[in-house]
Design a protein around this nucleic acid. Structure first.
Lengths: 200, 200
DNA sequence: GTCTATATATTGATAGAC
DNA sequence: GTCTATCAATATATAGAC
């Protein structure tokens, strides 16, 4: 169906992804987005009939980017190395987390304040990480309830450390939590039943 | 010095505390605050010459409220019971956390997006909890570095679980983390040196 | 001290020329 | 499809009557 041949829509989404992270959703104007994407303000409404629709496109883009990033870990041979890679990545980008906060946390919070229309979108942004982690623990031989419980603790500690590091302006909060989570992961009780891959 | 005899200022701050939590800082207008506090909009600027100053007063109010709440735990006989009370409180108010998110997280994030003028204020909101927890662990005999490390892990898991529960709309994320943290606290290695209060 | 205007800027969104 | 001009609503903040 008649999508435009240009990359204008993609440029608008990319600009919105960045600005929603840097300034927040409410403080980012359509004019801001258009300017960052190097086009006139009125043009935005050709691609998105309302700011809400732009927000939905931004959520879609984050889900896609997160899935792409998580796929990078697929080259690791076992589930534990893949999860460890996920955990350690927080250290690699802790500077961004400290200065701007987690983009997922920001987006989820912002969208919940924009009326019921966007509340459902807010829940989607973390779902990709949740599902990937549950899938990895399951591959490691844990039952789905076990994998879910482990994932929830991991996600809480992981994103909580980012939250604290941002609020306190201190990247060592992330480094300490990463070290703690790696140790926690290594000392996790082995799954009771069959494991599709041996080794810790 | 010439403070007004009425409670209008306090009513404005209370209204702002509530609205900043429910709607976020950017989406809360001065008119909203005045209306909630039952007075005309123009009146706000007699007490706060700018919206920024209202934000500062809201941060002050949160620091005071947090200190008052933490003092409730002083009746507990030992540091471990006091920290346990702090942890368990997340369950008691998990409904509020799920529907509105943590007010501290929201305020901290919102203020960081309002230019450099309010960034410093954003760091203050968690400081009361950090310092109280470090103080409790220290009373339990831990060294200041040990107490700080324990506090940082606790704060990350605690506030991370609230963040996830809000984003996913699921209070069991908080209940599970609370159970985990209580077990973690109980199994924490005893401090090496003198302890001002015996017992786990 | 308190409240009623109102100034001024910016917002999301639309209409219509090209 | 693209862009200009502009609307209507809402925001913070001020001036000045009471």
């Amino acid at each position: 169906m008649g999508r435009p041949a240009t990359d204008k829509r993609a440029r608008l989404v990319a600009a919105a992804v960045q600005l929603f992270h840097h300034k927040g959703y409410a403080r980012t104007s359509i004019a801001d987005v258009a300017k960052t994407a190097r086009m006139p303000a009125g043009n935005v409404f050709y691609f998105f009939k309302a700011k809400e629709d732009l927000a939905r496109a931004v959520v879609d883009d984050w889900c896609r980017m997160l899935a792409d990033y998580l796929a990078v870990h697929d080259s690791q041979p076992d589930y534990e190395s893949r999860i460890e890679g996920f955990i350690e990545n927080a250290c690699a980008i802790s500077g961004m987390y400290v200065s701007l906060g987690c983009p997922l946390a920001g987006l989820a919070r912002d969208l919940r304040h924009e009326g019921n229309a966007l509340t459902a979108e807010a829940s989607r942004v973390y779902a990709v990480q949740f599902e990937w982690l549950i899938g990895q623990f399951t591959l490691g031989g844990y039952s789905v309830p076990e994998a879910t419980a482990h994932t929830r603790l991991l996600m809480a500690g992981y994103h909580g450390a980012i939250l604290m590091a941002h609020a306190q302006g201190d990247p060592t909060l992330i480094a300490d939590e990463v070290a703690h989570l790696k140790s926690w992961l290594k000392n996790l009780p082995r799954p009771a039943s069959r494991s599709t891959r041996r080794r810790a």
